[in-house]
Computed example of a mutant assay.
Amino acid sequence: MDLEVLRSFRAVAEGMTVTEAAAEAGLTQPALSRALRRLEEEVGAELLQRVGRVLRPTPAGRVFKEYADAALDSWDRGRRAVAEVVDPEAGVVSLAFLHTLGTWLVPKLVTGFREAHPHVRFELRQHEENGLVQHLLDATADLVITSGDPGHPLITWRRLLVEPLWLAVPTGHRLAGRGRVRLAEVAGEPFILLKPGYGLRSVTETLCREAGFAPLVGFEGEEVHTLRGLVAAGLGVSLIPSSPDTAATPDFPIRYLEITDVRGARDIGLARLAGRTLPPVARSFGEHALRATAGPAAGRD
């Protein structure tokens, strides 16, 4: 059984199209389709079925994927361990992080580290808070960058920085002409939120509670970019990690307002599994992340 076919199966089972998975694997679409059919023959069951224009895992496919995930993760860990023994400077850092940190913090940290360690590779995973914790518990990530201390007895966490949160309102909103507001001033207005399980959702609910109200859920999304789009469309307000001097554009006519009645910020930190000895290259990256985010210069541009 070809491990790369297993990777392609996993990618398709997680929502990638066969065409996209083939391109990622360096294959043609027909070649990957044939490989997936051979995989089904080896397993002895249909693993993927067409639903509309995309493939979705069958019940047998969902069961098989759990074992494929375990096999691939075990293989990757073994390969990394050997690589680090042979050459610690050419190892792999397995890093998981919040979706919202993939546009600014993670690229900066990875780029800075690779300037000193150009042969190190990264396995990057994006997830919501609960998924990040599970990556550590399953040992599928060496380190995770998350908002706030997970509060898990098996996980240690260190703060990297404090990220400001701003109240995003449409440019036509009654408060848009102001620079600073109390969060309580939008009590009763619809909030555009990330779905439950995301760190920003929990932070928003906590800050609203501290301001004396529970947010009225207008819409829920899975990406901050979606939140911004819905705010720009005038469908509600949102707490968004963004620079306050971000200019409104025709696509995103938004004003970002400073919050004065509650702490409009969230802690961003680095977590690892307590008691687990990190690979040398992962330990070096963790130390780099702490150094790179120390002091006022570590904030957002």
Rank of each mutant, 00 (worst) to 15 (best):
E4M: 12
G264R: 06
P241A: 11
P170S: 02
R174G: 06
S74N: 04
D261M: 03
A35D: 01
D2Y: 05
H173C: 02
S8G: 14
T111G: 09
P164H: 10
P170H: 07
E189L: 10
R10D: 13
V51K: 01
T156R: 08
R79F: 07
F64K: 09
A81L: 13
C208K: 06
Q49E: 15
R80M: 09
T171K: 10
W157Y: 15
A184Q: 09
R291D: 00
T293Q: 07
H152C: 07
D245M: 01
L273Q: 06
P280S: 12
H225S: 15
I259F: 14
P280Y: 01
T293I: 04
D245H: 00
F97K: 04
A22Y: 11
L124M: 04
A187W: 10
R50P: 07
R79T: 13
V181D: 05
L124E: 08
V18M: 10
H119P: 01
E185G: 10
L167S: 12
R178A: 11
V86R: 15
T156F: 05
A90P: 14
L160V: 03
L3Y: 14
A271N: 03
G102V: 00
S238K: 11
A90M: 14
L278H: 09
S33R: 13
T204S: 14
D245Y: 09
E40F: 05
F64N: 05
R174H: 15
G218C: 08
E41C: 05
E189S: 12
F97H: 15
L194V: 07
D76E: 15
L175W: 08
T28C: 04
G148L: 08
G91K: 02
